[in-house]
Amino acid sequence: MNINIALFGIAREIVGQSSLTLNAPVGQSAAGLLADLRHTYPELAGLRSLAVAVNNEYAADDVVLHERDEIALIPPVSGG
């Protein structure tokens, strides 16, 4: 399945674009996606934290991703 991932802040700069389309195995979990991305973009592993958001909610490691989900990579937030 193809999934689209929105990228923000330092994650967007590390990857070099504001979104990614990846071919992921059916049943891919949030943790699996993070592991794949850290493998492809090792600088992501140096961040203080990195979360996956699915449909505007933070996703636990075992959340399964679906093709139509709105997926985003959330580097350490610093609003306020």
């Binding site: 802040g9 330092i10 958001a53 933070y58 959330i74 937030v77 610093s78 609003g79 306020g80």
Partner: peptide, 14 residues
């Protein structure tokens, strides 16, 4: 509210 905002709201400051 401001403390929790800083922890969870996806906004980034450069």
């Amino acid at each position: 509210i401001i403390d929790t905002l800083k922890e969870v709201v996806p906004i980034w400051k450069k």
